[in-house]
């Protein structure tokens, strides 16, 4: 009897072990399986789309990005498929995405090749204003099934924008020039751009509001002689490098703002991307323009 008893105990113990092991192993599998089956694989070709996906909590869906996607820091772990306009088709396909998203149009050939390979291409078109930014967020939220989170994010942004514009209305209106490029070609936020709208919203008088197509002329810059110059560091340069070059180049060195040291930095990526950080960008711009008065 005692033998039988110990046999029973052995069998019992063995089955117990097997059961715990299988349940331990099976548990996550059972839980995860439906999700892995459904989990989208996304390649984003635009920095603002990448930012939006992360802001909606969908960072783990991203399997590929462009060279220019640099925010948030987690994107560095995601493989890049190349540049904005010339991504590598091979690299994209090797990542086996379900959908490729972009806010800038891609070439027809690339679009066709993606469709042929059975990959969906989602081109997100939006207006160049805050309403457009909300459209972008809403569209992405819908595609990745995070509608509620998207609406919450939009509401948050709307409140912040409202707060900023109302505060700015009560402040003085300094004349401002937003320097994007200088030297042989003067690049600025002209009246037809989203950046110029942002400047108006925060109560700045953009001297280039009558110009179009991102270009301005030195003559008008000298004539209007703004109170403040916002410097967006040029590609590959820091604010210190760009502003030092700007301040030592004629005719910019003779501008009132340069002489009085009214050159303020702004993060070029932050202000140029329409996305979840746009409200934050607006606030930074307001701080840069109104400085102490804003604090």
């Amino acid at each position: 009897m005692p033998i039988l008893n110990s046999k029973k105990v052995c069998i019992f113990l063995f089955s117990l072990i097997v059961f715990t092991c299988t349940s331990l192993v099976a548990q996550p599998l059972l839980e995860e399986k439906p999700e892995t089956l459904q989990q989208l694989r996304i390649v984003s070709l635009s920095p603002n789309v990448t930012e939006t996906i992360f802001a909606l909590g969908g960072g783990d869906l991203l399997v590929g990005r462009s060279d220019f996607c640099n925010y948030p820091l987690e994107v560095e772990a995601i493989p890049s498929v190349g540049m904005l306009y010339t991504p590598s088709l091979e690299k994209i396909l090797s990542l086996e995405p379900d959908v490729v998203m972009s806010s800038t149009s891609i070439s027809d050939q690339l679009h066709e090749s993606l469709t042929k390979a059975g990959v969906e291409f989602l081109f997100i078109d939006y207006e160049e204003n805050f309403i457009g930014t909300y459209t972008l967020i809403r569209e992405i939220a819908q595609r990745i099934n995070r509608v509620e989170k998207g609406e919450l994010l939009i509401l948050e942004m709307q409140n912040k924008v409202k707060e900023i514009t109302e505060r700015a209305r009560l402040m003085q209106k300094p004349s401002v020039y937003l320097m994007i490029d200088f030297g042989s070609f003067d690049g600025t936020a002209t009246g037809d751009t989203y950046l110029s709208q942002m400047l108006e919203m925060i109560g700045a008088d953009n001297i280039a509001k009558d110009a179009t197509k991102w270009t301005y002329s030195k003559e008008l810059l000298i004539e209007k002689d703004p109170d403040l110059i916002i410097i967006s560091p040029r590609w590959g340069e820091t604010f210190e490098q760009t502003s030092a070059l700007f301040a030592s180049t004629k005719p910019y060195s003779d501008l009132r703002a340069t002489k009085e040291g009214n050159l303020v930095p702004i993060d070029a990526d932050l202000i140029s991307r329409q996305g979840p950080r746009s409200a934050q960008a607006l606030e930074l711009l307001a701080k840069a323009v109104h400085q102490k008065a804003w604090l």
Binding site: F185, D186, T190, A208, D210, A211, T212, K213, W214, T215, Y216, S217, L220
Partner: peptide, 8 residues
């Protein structure tokens, strides 16, 4: 210089 109203 004069073909474009504000740029170059």
């Amino acid at each position: 210089r004069i073909l474009l109203p504000t740029g170059e």
